[in-house]
């Protein structure tokens, strides 16, 4: 493992993340880390795009050691050779958690695609977790509730579908919409997402097995989510035995980025007793 102190949480942020580099069973894996190394841990699993920064995690670093791994095939991590489905990432994270010494008392926060990964991880590895936060998680199919398929949304429409207020996203978007590096990075990430979810965007395991996750769980949703409708929150909660739902007004899919209240609520929930 090597550490480089470089990455700011977001534009103008005073928090600098250390970039830690691991080899996870052959996959070069980047983990951003900030906060007191001896503090309780929050692991954040990101969504299908890594471009919108980590400013929402800034407040968490006051009381927590915050660890943000880049999934294989996203951001600064390498590709996972032979990747096929979400469970390959669960296994990847079991190995990474072992390397990071995360054997117990972890607060796991997963957003969107990362919410799906976190839920699947929790089903198998709940003994490592203290609390689970699912932020607008992807992957649950609810009969009668129409959800647009991510791959059907044209890329030019996607920014508008991610946020309630476009100014949330503007600092992270290139000034030239045809910016080659930005477009290629997003292509790589949607490619990785497609490897896992193109044939079946819904996860068949969740409805049957989420009941195993009997640790305190918070389901967070932006009331104005235009990607995964807020109505999904109750369906997740109904399957999670010890869950509560927190909805935040004036926030879209990127609810943590758009609502300081949401980000604060996550920290407060992690502060709570077991």
């Amino acid at each position: 493992m090597t550490a480089t102190p470089v990455t700011p949480a977001g534009p103008g942020s005073r928090v600098l993340f250390d970039q830690l580099d691991y080899d996870v069973n052959g996959t070069p894996t980047t983990v951003l880390a900030a906060g007191n190394p001896d503090a309780p841990r929050i692991v954040f699993l990101h969504g299908a795009g890594t471009f919108h920064g980590w400013a929402f995690a800034e407040r968490w670093t006051e009381r927590y050691r915050v660890l943000i791994p880049h999934h294989p095939g996203y951001g600064d991590s390498g590709d996972l050779d032979g990747l096929r489905d979400i469970h390959d990432l669960v296994l990847h994270y079991i190995e990474l958690f072992d390397q990071l010494g995360l054997t117990a008392d972890v607060n796991l926060v997963g957003f969107s695609l990362g919410g799906l990964i976190a839920a699947r991880f929790a089903i198998e590895q709940k003994h490592r977790l203290r609390r689970l936060v699912l932020v607008a998680p992807a992957g649950l199919r609810v009969p009668g509730l129409a959800v647009d398929d991510l791959f059907r949304i044209p890329p030019e429409e996607l920014p508008g579908r991610l946020v309630h207020r476009m100014d949330t996203l503007l600092p992270y978007l290139p000034s030239d919409p045809g910016d080659v590096d930005f477009t290629v990075d997003r292509y790589r990430e949607i490619r990785t997402t497609a490897i896992m979810l193109w044939e079946q965007p819904y996860d068949r395991v969740l409805p049957r097995w989420l009941g195993r996750v009997d640790i305190p769980t918070l389901v967070v949703w932006g009331a104005e989510d235009r990607l995964l409708p807020v109505d999904l929150a109750d369906s997740w909660a109904a399957l999670l035995p010890r869950s509560t739902v927190a909805r935040f007004p004036d926030a879209g899919h990127l609810v943590l980025d758009e609502s300081a209240d949401a980000s604060a609520a996550v920290a407060r929930f992690c502060d709570g007793g077991g």
């Binding site: 080659v180 477009t183 292509y187 949607i190 490619r191 997402t193 497609a194 193109w198």
Partner: peptide, 16 residues
């Protein structure tokens, strides 16, 4: 160019 139809380096060539 659906997701993953070409490799990442090939995609970079194509969009240019």
């Amino acid at each position: 160019n659906p997701p993953g139809y070409v490799t990442v380096p090939e995609f970079r060539k194509r969009i240019q």
